[in-house]
Amino acid sequence: MPQVTLTVNGKTHTVEVEARTLLVELLREKLRLTGTHVGCDTSQCGACVVQMNGDSVKSCTTLALQAEGATVTTIEGLAKADGTLHPMQEAFREYHALQCGFCTPGMVMSAIDLVEKHPQGLNEAEIREGLEGNLCRCTGYHNIVKAIGAAQEVMHGRSATLAPAHAAE
């Protein structure tokens, strides 16, 4: 059986997989990192988004073997060891940017990639466009967009702390 070696959340793994094994199956079933979700399984919904070599990718539409040698970050890899949330996670909590939570891991991973690639900052329309590949059936996106807008200020060092949600009203 083929083997794949990859680094996930800072830890290197060598895992036996079938050629047809998807990256999301490797993450969930072999490494038991079940924070990455499978929604549509057709690369439309974005619940499976992880970062691979610094880019957001749909792990349900990537073969595990295509991740050979890659550095992968999943939702489990964002918070610090002491439990301090990543600013994007903290913003989703503060702005109530989720209801059922199913899409949230993919939303957070896509949002981080979006913000990191736009150091000049994103306006509301740009944030909404950047989320085209992530579907949420609960929130109507409104608070997700607000959360990302607030998180980018912290991520780019323009603000030391997250703006409280009530001040944004």
Partner: peptide, 9 residues
Amino acid sequence: IGDPAVRNR
């Protein structure tokens, strides 16, 4: 084309 994650692959 597609969405950001699709464009990354």
